[in-house]
Design a protein around this nucleic acid. Structure first.
Lengths: 138, 138
DNA sequence: ATAGTTTATGCAACTTAATTGCATTTACTG
DNA sequence: CAGTAAATGCAATTAAGTTGCATAAACTAT
């Protein structure tokens, strides 16, 4: 993934091109798995905690990242598809959490099955999180 | 739900019967919705924060409560079925989070559909979280 | 290119959640 | 009811999340 492409992604989302944002995007692309604020702090030591925090929030609002529900108590983020926008996330793919290595993956290819709810409930989005053992740890 | 019954639930899970544990269990039974550490602190003011924290953890290990994945950053807990045990949770029901009132419900009656994963992945548990508008807020 | 404007960053500070150690109290067992 | 094992409260620490503000950097329009 070239830096030029990353810059255009930022511009397409009406975000200014900064070193921090480029680095954060590259980190997500390299890792492929979901990342937390703490992961960024460990890896991207040149930036302030608050800057990373705000970068995550900007990406979230812009539709570059989505938040993945988890049990750990700290927020986890994954890269969005191209189809995501500030107006709405199309991130109804499954998430897989490995109980051995702890990594959270987005299974982009797997769509979430239709769910039926009791009458009166209005569905807005569906999140499916599967726990188990990933390919690497099996 | 009588206090006697609650006591036997605790004993069945090899937990000593204490006021705090009884009160926490009653609170969960009254509320019916999922609760967080903060909820307990607001309601059960007579107990130390740490005691409530450890009560939640004990209930989690014993299979009385299960943790519900969420995006908020603070852990949320729901009552387990009778079928849960320290050896394994059978909490594969759906969870519903209302985007208006914020409450998280366990939809016990709705089981999670079977999921198929890419080859090499081993499934241990499945969590389905539906966001939308609940009956009360609709 | 550059001056002017808007936005991002770093720093300080604060709030809340999660967590651990230890002394004391309480619940169970015989 | 005495002895033991576990639960509680208190103090203290770590980490996550959050905000305000001054400065620095990125963009825009000459």
């Amino acid at each position: 993934m070239s830096t030029d492409h990353l810059k255009s992604v930022l511009k397409n989302h009406n975000l200014r091109v900064t070193d921090c944002r480029i680095d954060v995007m590259e980190y997500f692309l390299d890792e492929k798995s979901a990342l937390s604020q703490g992961d960024l702090e460990s890896k991207l030591t040149g930036y302030d905690r608050v800057t990373l925090y705000r970068t995550l929030n900007n990406f979230l609002e812009s539709g570059i990242l989505h938040k993945i529900p988890n049990e750990s108590g700290s927020a986890t983020y994954g890269l969005c598809h191209d189809t995501c926008s500030p107006e709405g996330h199309m991130d109804n793919h499954m998430h897989f959490k490995c109980n051995r290595c702890g990594q959270i993956e987005c299974l982009d290819k797997k769509t979430v099955p239709e769910v039926s709810l009791p009458t009166g409930y209005q569905v807005e989005s569906v999140n499916l999180i599967v726990d188990g053992v990933c390919v690497k740890c099996a």
